[in-house]
Amino acid sequence: MPMVQRKQVIPGDVIATGNHRYGSYIEKRGDEYVALRIGLAEVGPDGVKLNPLTGPYLPRAEDQVIGKVVDINGFGWVVDINSCFDGFLPASFVFGREFSPATHDLSSKFKVGDVIGARIESFDRSRDPQLSIRGEGYGKFPEGEIIKMSPTKVPRLIGRRGAMVNFISERTGCDVKVGQNGVVVIVGPPEGMAKATAVVKMIDQGTHGADLMGKVEEYLGGSSVAGA
């Protein structure tokens, strides 16, 4: 098994030297790889990686996000996606090619205040992120509890290939929808929702070590067979 070295870093710390591939939040200076964020750095066969422990959500193409419609104009919906940039969902992505502002009523589809799941179609430095609801599981969420969490903790909530979020759904009987922008929507029976909400908050607040699954299991009680 190849060794992965882990290291706690703060901005300015050298994570590794030499020649590696490197990911986000890392800057290369000469042959040094320097951290730009507070986080846990990994040096392994895949290169140098940094998992930040804090930070805002910055949109990236292909991210799945949950947002709230804040405005409607003639051409689409403006969606608050918990970021410094507002998402824009063009009406033509929803009504199709034949969309015309004269014949289609945008508020018949989504009203201001509606919570929707969407995918980030495109985003670059010069334009605000463009959203799309094409695909399974996107569109309006008619009910549920909305929780905001730190976007840097979202990967912990999702778990390896969705293991954590599936486990929570299974144990609480709730549907847990997670946006990569740190917005979570939980739908289900009241007692399950209370439990699921508490677990999401626990994952958000703590700095957890390796056995987060164990902690969640203990919290939700019952035998450990069902999950995995």
């Binding site: 703060i10 901005p11 300015g12 939040y25 730009l36 964020r37 507070i38 930070g55 805002p56 840097t152």
Partner: peptide, 11 residues
């Protein structure tokens, strides 16, 4: 700034 998670070259 570091606590806010803003990318920084150094403190």
């Amino acid at each position: 700034l570091a606590d806010a998670g803003i990318n920084m070259r150094d403190l």
